[in-house]
Structure formats: C-alpha cells, structure tokens
Computed example of a mutant assay.
Amino acid sequence: MQYQKTITLRDGTPCILRGTNSADAAQVLSIFNLTHAQTDFLLTYPDESRMTVEEEQQYLAKSADSADSIEICAILDGRIVGTAGISAVGHLEKLRHRAEFGISIDKDYWGRGIGRALTLACIDCARTAGYSQLELDVVAENTAAQALYQSVGFAEYGRNPRGFRTRSGQWQELILMRMELN
C-alpha cells in the first residue's frame, strides 16, 4: 500500500508522511529501538527486537506491496521521527474486516501533532484497504494517547487488567479500543 502527504505541524514545521520502503530499514529499526526505550507504554523492550536490517528490508518491501497493510513514517528534516501502521487481524473470512493499528514516536517530538497525523493517515489507509473496523490496545496510564484516540473516533470496548507485565513485575492495564470505519 502506498501513502504520501506533507502536513504542517502545530509549530509550523513541514512534516512528510509516507509509506516506508526497504531503503528505510536501518532508520526504521533505529527509531523502533529508540522509541521502545523511551517509554514503558509499548509492547516490547528494545532488546527483544531480533530483526536484522535485511529482515526489516523484506518486511517493509512486503508492506509497501501489500493491499491491506502499511507502515507509514513521519519525516522531519530528512530523519524518521516516528512510525505507525496497520495490519490485518487475520485473513480468514470472519476476521478480514478487522485491522490492528500501532504507533510510536520519538519522545523529543511528542506534542507537535505527529501522532494525530499518523493516526489519521492510518485510518485513511484502513478505509482504502476496505476494513470496516480498526483496533488498538493502549496502556491505561497513557492518558494522552487515549485522549488522541477518542478524539478521532476510537471507543473503548474492554479492559485487560493484566495486559502487560513489566520487567519490574508491575501489571499494566490495557484498554481495548476500536473504530468503525463504515
């Protein structure tokens, strides 16, 4: 799937949103590891990433060629500062209407409108791909992300009080959210 759009951030800075490709692999891996080290709100720890640059190249190429999934990057001053994407929950007939959404942004760029822009881009792509439902999980303590998701139309449909267990042994409640796209 392809996507490209230039937006203006809250501070007036231009930001390019575009679908990733295999040439982005090293930067995408770098921003993945950085963002996963900056917050405890994401699914994995940076040291759990086992993907090589070559494997990331293959994954991004497959995503770029896909009709129902995409990885979008946010680029400021020639540097990837965040990524977001959608992928199928499953390809069986009873599941193919559902897509999952994920996002991560370098903490130095939080609060500038990049998260909203990437989220809206993924919603557009999910509609284009023909999905009728977009889903995500958000850590309950991540109130800023919850507010963003609610503001663009996601609604809570459940909670998992032991959704994540941190390395320090703490439980993190996950809020399950979804958006109907049609």
Results as ranks from 00 to 15, higher is better:
M1N: 05
G158M: 13
V89N: 03
A99I: 04
G90P: 02
Y157N: 06
A126W: 11
G78S: 11
A67F: 11
R79K: 15
S104T: 01
G153F: 12
E56G: 01
E180Y: 12
G82H: 11
T119C: 15
T143N: 01
Q146I: 15
D40Q: 11
I175F: 09
G12N: 11
Y45E: 06
I75Q: 10
T166G: 13
R79E: 12
L136M: 14
K94D: 00
A88Q: 04
L29I: 05
G153R: 07
L148R: 06
Q58S: 05
M179Q: 14
S132M: 05
R159P: 08
D47A: 02
H36V: 05
E55W: 09
F164E: 00
Q172C: 10
A121C: 13
R10E: 09
Q133H: 06
W110D: 00
F32P: 00
T128N: 12
V53C: 06
Y149L: 08
Y45P: 00
Q170Y: 06
R10G: 04
T143H: 10
Y157E: 07
S30M: 09
A145H: 10
R159I: 10
C73M: 12
I80T: 07
G113C: 09
V81M: 10
M1A: 13
L17H: 03
S168M: 05
N142Y: 14
L60F: 09
D124Q: 14
A129Q: 05
I7C: 08
R167A: 12
F101L: 13
K107F: 03
G19M: 11
M51C: 02
C125D: 00
